[in-house]
Structures are given as C-alpha cells and as structure tokens.
Write a protein that binds this DNA or RNA. Sequence first.
DNA 1: GCCGCCAGCATTGTTAACAATAATTGTTAA
DNA 2: TTAACAATTATTGTTAACAATGCTGGCGGC
Lengths: 235, 235
Amino acid sequence: MDAQPENQIVRAVIDAISEQRLPAGAKLGEQVLSDLFDCNRANVRRALASLAAQHVVELRPNRGAFVVAPSAQEAREVFQARRAIERTIARQAIGRVTDADIAYLRANISAETEARTLRDKPAELRTSQRFHMYLAQLSGNRILERFLAELTMRSTLILGMYSAEGHSCARCDDHRGIVDALIARDEELLLRLAEEHLRNLEAELNFDISTTSAGGLKDQLLGPKPSSDKPVTRL
Amino acid sequence: MDAQPENQIVRAVIDAISEQRLPAGAKLGEQVLSDLFDCNRANVRRALASLAAQHVVELRPNRGAFVVAPSAQEAREVFQARRAIERTIARQAIGRVTDADIAYLRANISAETEARTLRDKPAELRTSQRFHMYLAQLSGNRILERFLAELTMRSTLILGMYSAEGHSCARCDDHRGIVDALIARDEELLLRLAEEHLRNLEAELNFDISTTSAGGLKDQLLGPKPSSDKPVTRL
DNA sequence: GCCGCCAGCATTGTTAACAATAATTGTTAA
DNA sequence: TTAACAATTATTGTTAACAATGCTGGCGGC
C-alpha cells in the first residue's frame, strides 16, 4: 500500500474525524504530528496542505491547522450534496449489486445494530459510514465515491456538533429498507428511501447547540489504546 | 484577496488547464514554478500537494508532478458525476434566479458564440465553463459549486484529450434552451435539457485518439504573452 | 550498427538551522 | 482585584545545504 508518511497522516486524521475522536475546531500542531508519526515537519506540512485542499482542516496563517467547524448553512449544503450524489450512486448500484454484496450489506447492518445496542459509538459510526461507502464502491464511480467520502466525513463532524442524542446514522431500519429495495430492483422505491434516509438524518440536527470539545490529540488520532507511554500532550 | 504564493500557483495551474494551455501529462517542475512565481520551493510543494489532493496533478515519487491524464473510464465517471450534481444545481437555480442573472447568462452566451465564431478557443472554453459555474453559484450550495469546479476543469482536460473537432462545451444552443427553461421555471424541461446537454458533450468524445502535446510551461501557465524574456524551459 | 553499461547532470526528497509571529505567563500599577 | 504591559515561550514560516534518485549522453562490447 501507500506507506508515505504524509498519506498516513491524512488517513489517520480522516479516520479520527470519522469516529469522532477528533472534534471540530481541534488544533493539529506540526510538532505533535511529526512526533506521533515520527517524520519530519515537511511531511506534516504536505499532509496538512492536502487536508486543507479537501476542506478537512483550515489553515490559519501563523496559527496552525484546525479541524473545520461546519456552520448550519454548510450542514444543509452537505446533506443536499449527499442527496444529489447518493441518488446517482443508488441508481447505479441497482444494476451492479450481486448476492455477495447483499450478504455483506446485511452483515454490516447487523454489526451496526449491535454496535448501537452496545453503545459503541465509534463502531456505530464506522459501520454506518461503511454502509454508504460500500454502495458508493458498488456504483463503480470513483469520483462520486471520493466526493461521498468527504461528505460522510463532514456529516460525522456535523453530527458531533449539532446532534443532541447521538443517533449518528443510526436509523438501521432505513438501511434495511434500502437493501430490500436494492434486491427488489425497485428503482423508484430505492430512490425515495435513500432520499428520505438523508432527510431523516438532517432533521435530527439541532443547530442551537454546538459542542467543540477537546481532548488528548494522541488518543484521538490513534484510538484509545489501553497503555500509553507518554503523558498526553495538550491539545 | 488571498495572495499566498501557494494559492496563486494553484489557481494559475487550474486556470491554465481550464483554458487548455496546460495539456494532460504536462510536467510541473518545482524549480520552474518557484522561478515563475518567485517563491521558495516549500511553497511550490505545498501547492502541488493541494493540487494532488484534488486529483489535478499526480505526484510520482522522485519524478515530480504531472497533470493527470483521465482515462476513458474516468471520463465517463466525470460526466456521470456532472449529471448528478448539475441536476441538483439546476433545480436550486429555479428558485433563486433573478432577472439580473438571466441578463448575465444571456450576455455570457453571446460572448461564447462570438468566441466560437472567432475561433478563440480559450475564450470559448472560459465562457462555456463560466455558464455552468454561474449556475452553480446561483444554486447557493458552495460544496456542489466546488465539486463542479473540479469536474468542469477535468472535462476540459478530457475534451482536450479525446475531442477531435474542438466543440468544447460549444453547444450554445443547449445553453440558450437551458436559460429559457430557467425563465419559464419549467423544472421538468430544465432537468431534461441539462441532462441532454451533458450527454451531448459526452457523445462527442472519441476515445481512439489521445493527444498529449507539450510546450513551454511559462506560456502555458501565464498565458501567451507576446514578448518573453527567457527561452522557454523544456517541458 | 545496435544494445547495454557507466559516469555526469538535473531534479526531487530530507534535514536542520534561523527568523517571524502569536500565545502565554508574570509583573506592575491603578 | 483587575487591567494593561512586558518578557518569555512555543509554534509556524523561510531558507539553505545536503542526500538520494532518476534521467541523459557517451563509451565500449557484441
């Protein structure tokens, strides 16, 4: 695979945001990152430039890199964009889905349900996002897949900021219905369910609250490992 | 505005590709760029990292940065993505378009027609892209606008590679019809015309040919100024 | 005469030191 | 006690030198 340190950093940051370990507004210091991934600052800066180009972080001159904090307006735009893109993805998926795919999607939904009952938030977020991204892969359109990856990541950020009760993408029932429509090859139903699902998600947002918590960057990035050699560097 | 040298480079490269001054496969050397924009290599590298993150250039290790050369498959994906995104943009535009916007769009179409009759390819490409991007702005969705900017740029690259007769986005008649449907607020007609327009564009591609010409990077990036102080660096 | 090899050159990648800017802390006076 | 100011510290930004890699052209062998 691609073991370039810069891509490693990019993936780690995106994964961390996707599992809500890295909250909106968190600062990504160059020194901290170069220590964590033991590479020089040049690589860190390249990684941050990439993330900035994808609007994952914001680069404030002489201040550093911060995880973006989407506004309510941006949140609406994200979900509108998702409806546009996932609509096409769903249509394409109808003609390409196989039995093996269905089996995978069902297993994934089960995992999501289990994660939710276990209150395992990261696993729940991961499986839910995986559902959408698997369909995107199925569509065979790598550009739409890439766009959706950015949008689902940003959705997670938005849910972390504006979601009171952590439903996340929790409506497994919606996912189940979508899979059923896929099997039935019922395009009209599928498109309706997909759109409804996204509207449901959006409807659960509450723009009055906006949490921008902060914690140890190392745990956020690398996950909550049991033993930690160094005291956590401050955010 | 944002006069950071790295963003300057990014914009210059994107503009150059949009007007087909920079062809697919062109190499972007660090030394050349740092000379052209008189900045240090660090800024150049940041710019190239940004462009790579947007899949505008490809970063080959120890080789340098090259403008991407979309395959036939990628071309199809680009146009499919455009249909998905511009569909939503068109719908949004219906509810937001003003008389002033219509006037602008009409003027832009005239300019496009004129550029075509004058065989001014860069102007033709610029106005045509502007038509699509103006609608995107009109939609009020900055995310879709950004996605479409990437897609139109890539479309230009694709047209440069696979278009025998340079129609570019030349079907002004299509644009005219779209504006008319916008005025009439006829959603059904508008969506049909927008989709047809993109399908027409795609249908004109010829994947048997694939031109990857090369020239002087300075003229390509900064435009063909009449007098040039230095002999052109090699590609 | 054609192909492979080797040296020199150009370009990219890495690192470290230094400068500039912002944040923090401590001090002093009202 | 608080507010403003000054000094310190930490972080980012810039630059240059060096290392490593890939490319080019000339040479000799087949």
